[in-house]
Design a protein around this nucleic acid. Sequence first.
DNA 1: TAATGAATGAAACAACTGTTTGAATAAGGT
DNA 2: ACCTTATTCAAACAGTTGTTTCATTCATTA
Lengths: 202, 202
Amino acid sequence: MTKNKIIVAALEEFAEHGYHAATIRNICRRAGVNIAAINYHFSGKAELYRQSLEMVFKLKPPLPCGEKIQSDSDLKSVLQDWIKTFLYRSNNKIIQENLLLKKIVHHEMLNPSEIFDELIETHLKPDVYSLESILRKGLPPDISEKEIKMRVFSILGNCVFYLFHERLVEKIWADGDFLEDNIEMVVDHITEQSLMGLKLIQ
Amino acid sequence: MTKNKIIVAALEEFAEHGYHAATIRNICRRAGVNIAAINYHFSGKAELYRQSLEMVFKLKPPLPCGEKIQSDSDLKSVLQDWIKTFLYRSNNKIIQENLLLKKIVHHEMLNPSEIFDELIETHLKPDVYSLESILRKGLPPDISEKEIKMRVFSILGNCVFYLFHERLVEKIWADGDFLEDNIEMVVDHITEQSLMGLKLIQ
DNA sequence: TAATGAATGAAACAACTGTTTGAATAAGGT
DNA sequence: ACCTTATTCAAACAGTTGTTTCATTCATTA
């Protein structure tokens, strides 16, 4: 089906070059269709972008939230689960669409199109709130908003660094794909460090 | 002087749109010079980019390294100094060139031009090594390379998150410029969390 | 089979890109 | 004054972009 072929090719192009730098001629060449197909099946480049993103949005697995925690001993495993899923689902080279989405999101972060806000609201915010609900279970109820947000940012910062700045990690580490080769170790490290912050305040 | 006007305008354009998306017509319009000036004073867009970066590279203040640490009590203050300087010098809105460089570096991270490697080697690696030398002072000498790199990545990840993904931080925090308004708190939080990781292993 | 509508294709459109040209101007030295 | 060099300018260059046009092909239904 032509429409599907275009979307797959578009995701690859958009992931590689971002929305603005991607060209419909490349997309069509990759999909093996005529240029006019873009304005026939979609109403232009913008609508193709939107529909491509909508397609891949639906594939993301859910993240655990604080409600999963019944006892204190659950805290570590649920937090670990969140971090692991967050890293895996964006770096899982088997499900290639997620790899593409990760790159597209990074492009949007730097050079946002009109879709950016929508993307944050429907995708990143729910993830962040579920992490926040997990952390709240390990913190006193009267903790300030700034403090809890800073703990969220710390975990998020670590994950985002490995996911988005793999090129930088690779240059510093200079020995293969660090996250790919040490993902269990990385997950444990982030979890431990976050838990230490929690323990101290309790 | 025409050449200087062009460089200033170019830095702004490159910071906003990245190397590829920036247009020399916009740069010239901003600088108030003719288009042909680019190929007269520089030899083209690429050389303009290179010279613009070289100019702003020289403005960056140095970061402290492990050699500054004489006693154990120095560790915290030197680490804090590194983090503070690293955040400040890229987010100091008084020295606008650094703000521009930060954005250009981010563009390079996602869509590297031929200059990228050079940029990493001469700029980011020295910073990272100085941080590494600080952390070594607080860790046993037989620590593994992976473990120390992971600690470096953790601090770097936190800093990079606030610097590069301010848009994301802003959306989640939804109440002004988080880093700008809480930079002391952020520096302390990152320092404390890193120190806890060090203490535990000693 | 004939007719209708959806899908495709080659070619052109206007607008943009980095670069080049060659003439006009400015500046400085003799 | 002159000559030489450095600098600026409007205009055009060839190439690319997203979009449109219109004739052609295909599939489906009457």
